[in-house]
C-alpha cells in the first residue's frame, strides 16, 4: 500500500514512520526544554554583564546633566534617587554622578551615597556603594594606597587619597561608621569609603576602599591638578 503524501497541505500528516515510543517523545520534550533553558540562561548572563552596564551608562548620561542643572539652580538637601555629587577616579579614567540612597532602584542609576553618612569634605565618612560591573566599580580593586579619588560638589573639589583596601563580610557595617572601623567613636578625619561586592559576580564578601581627605579646592579656582588629563 502506498501513501499519497499531500506536500502542499497546511500541515503534514503523521505517517507510520513518524511513530516513536512515548518514552522517546518525553525524552525529546525534556531535551528541548533543557536546551531552551540553557539558551535563556546564557542570554541572562549576557544581560547581567552587558545589559545592566549599558543601562547604568545611559542613566549616568542623564544624571550628569541633571546634576549640573541642580547645581546651577540652588543648594538643596539631597533627595533620595537624585544625584548629590560626582566622584572622579583618574587612575581608572572614570567619573560618576553619585545618587542619594543605596536601594536597588538607586544603584541601578550608578553609585549611591549611604544616607546619613557624611557629605564630601565633612569630618566623618562619605560612604558610597556601587555595583561590581563594567560601568561602575568593576576595577576598584586596582586602587592602591595613594591613588586619588576626587569628590566634586556644587561648591568644591575634595581630593582624597586611598589609605586602605580591605575585604569584609556583608554585615561589617563598621566600615561605613563615621570613624571607619571604630563604630561609636567620634570622627576626627574626613574619610571616603567605597563598597562593592567581591568576588566579581558573587556576594559573600564586600570590597572596601578607604580614602582620606588631603586637600580641598573651591570651584572658583578651577579643576584640581590631580584631574589633569582626566575627562
Amino acid at each position: 500500500m502506498t501513501h499519497l503524501v499531500e506536500w502542499d497541505a497546511p500541515s503534514r500528516r503523521r505517517t507510520e514512520e513518524d511513530w516513536e515510543p512515548p518514552s522517546r517523545r518525553v525524552g525529546r520534550m525534556l531535551g528541548e526544554l533543557m536546551l531552551t533553558a540553557g539558551l535563556v540562561l546564557v542570554l541572562f548572563a549576557a544581560y547581567a554583564t552587558y545589559g545592566k552596564a549599558w543601562r547604568i551608562e545611559s542613566e549616568q548620561n542623564a544624571l550628569a546633566g541633571e546634576l549640573d542643572r541642580s547645581w546651577a539652580a540652588s543648594a538643596g538637601r539631597p533627595v533620595e534617587g537624585q544625584p548629590m555629587a560626582r566622584i572622579h577616579i583618574p587612575k581608572l579614567g572614570r567619573q560618576w554622578a553619585v545618587v542619594e540612597g543605596v536601594s536597588q532602584a538607586d544603584l541601578r542609576k550608578g553609585p549611591g551615597h549611604y544616607p546619613r553618612t557624611a557629605q564630601p569634605g565633612q569630618i566623618g565618612n562619605v560612604a558610597i556603594a556601587g555595583h561590581r560591573i563594567s560601568s561602575v566599580f568593576w576595577d576598584v580593586d586596582r586602587l592602591d594606597r595613594g591613588d586619588v579619588i576626587v569628590a566634586e560638589t556644587r561648591t568644591g573639589w575634595f581630593v582624597y587619597r586611598v589609605v586602605r583596601q580591605r575585604l569584609v563580610l556583608p554585615r561589617q557595617v563598621e566600615v561605613i561608621a563615621p570613624s571607619p572601623g571604630r563604630p561609636g567613636e567620634a570622627p576626627r578625619k574626613a574619610m571616603l569609603t567605597l563598597t562593592t561586592c567581591n568576588p566579581k559576580f558573587q556576594n559573600w564578601q564586600r570590597l572596601v576602599v578607604h580614602a582620606e581627605l588631603v586637600r580641598e579646592q573651591a570651584k572658583s579656582r578651577g579643576r584640581p591638578a590631580e584631574l589633569k588629563g582626566h575627562p
Binding site: L43, F44, Y47, A48, G51, K52, V102, Q104, L107, Y114, A129, G130, H131, R132, I133, F137, V168, P170, R171, Q172, V173, V175, I176, T195, T196, C197, F201, Q202, N203, R206, V208
Partner: peptide, 18 residues
C-alpha cells in the same frame, strides 16, 4: 530580566546589619 535581576542576590554591594 530586569524583574528577575532585582530578586537575585548577586549584586548586593552594601554593608548592612542584617
Amino acid at each position: 530580566f530586569p524583574l528577575v535581576d532585582g530578586l537575585l542576590p548577586f549584586d548586593d554591594v552594601t554593608v548592612d546589619g542584617r
